[in-house]
Simulated scan of single mutants.
Amino acid sequence: MKRYDLRKLGNDFEPRMKEILEEKHKPNETLIFLFEIGDFTPIQRSADLVKECGYELYNSLKFNEVDWTIVVKK
Rank of each mutant, 00 (worst) to 15 (best):
50 V>S: 03
11 N>S: 14
54 G>V: 01
59 N>G: 10
44 Q>E: 13
47 A>Q: 10
20 I>G: 05
17 M>T: 08
36 E>W: 00
55 Y>W: 14
55 Y>E: 01
44 Q>A: 13
15 P>Y: 07
25 H>A: 03
72 V>E: 02
60 S>M: 11
19 E>A: 13
16 R>M: 14
49 L>G: 00
3 R>L: 14
9 L>Q: 13
50 V>E: 02
58 Y>G: 10
72 V>D: 02
28 N>M: 07
70 I>F: 03
58 Y>N: 14
22 E>Q: 15
71 V>E: 14
40 F>R: 12
28 N>Y: 07
48 D>M: 12
64 N>W: 06
32 I>R: 06
3 R>T: 15
33 F>L: 02
38 G>I: 00
37 I>P: 01
1 M>H: 12
1 M>Q: 11
49 L>A: 07
74 K>L: 04
9 L>I: 09
25 H>C: 00
36 E>R: 04
61 L>R: 13
17 M>K: 08
64 N>T: 06
43 I>V: 14
15 P>W: 06
46 S>K: 03
37 I>C: 02
8 K>F: 14
16 R>W: 06
32 I>F: 02
16 R>Y: 09
18 K>M: 08
27 P>H: 05
35 F>L: 01
60 S>R: 05
61 L>F: 07
48 D>R: 11
60 S>Y: 04
73 K>E: 10
18 K>C: 07
54 G>N: 03
50 V>T: 13
26 K>N: 05
8 K>S: 15
3 R>N: 12
74 K>A: 03
50 V>G: 00
74 K>V: 00
2 K>C: 08
5 D>A: 06
52 E>G: 02
2 K>A: 13
39 D>H: 09
63 F>E: 11
4 Y>E: 13
69 T>I: 14
28 N>L: 09
65 E>G: 12
57 L>E: 06
27 P>I: 06
73 K>I: 13
39 D>C: 15
29 E>T: 04
72 V>K: 03
60 S>P: 03
66 V>N: 12
28 N>P: 00
3 R>G: 08
25 H>T: 02
5 D>V: 04
44 Q>H: 10
26 K>T: 04
40 F>T: 11
74 K>D: 04
27 P>R: 09
55 Y>S: 04
59 N>S: 15
43 I>K: 01
59 N>F: 08
6 L>T: 06
38 G>M: 00
11 N>Q: 15
7 R>W: 08
16 R>Q: 15
15 P>Q: 09
24 K>S: 11
30 T>W: 02
14 E>P: 01
28 N>R: 10
53 C>P: 01
56 E>Y: 06
8 K>Y: 15
29 E>L: 03
12 D>Y: 13
60 S>G: 13
37 I>R: 04
45 R>C: 02
22 E>C: 10
24 K>L: 08
10 G>L: 11
21 L>E: 07
35 F>K: 00
11 N>C: 11
55 Y>I: 03
45 R>G: 02
25 H>Y: 01
63 F>Q: 08
68 W>R: 03
73 K>L: 07
58 Y>R: 15
62 K>A: 12
7 R>C: 15
40 F>A: 13
24 K>G: 03
20 I>A: 06
31 L>P: 02
66 V>A: 14
4 Y>I: 12
28 N>K: 12
72 V>L: 07
41 T>H: 09
40 F>E: 14
64 N>Y: 05
15 P>H: 08
20 I>M: 08
22 E>A: 09
18 K>Q: 14
17 M>P: 06
42 P>G: 00
35 F>T: 01
23 E>R: 14
1 M>T: 14
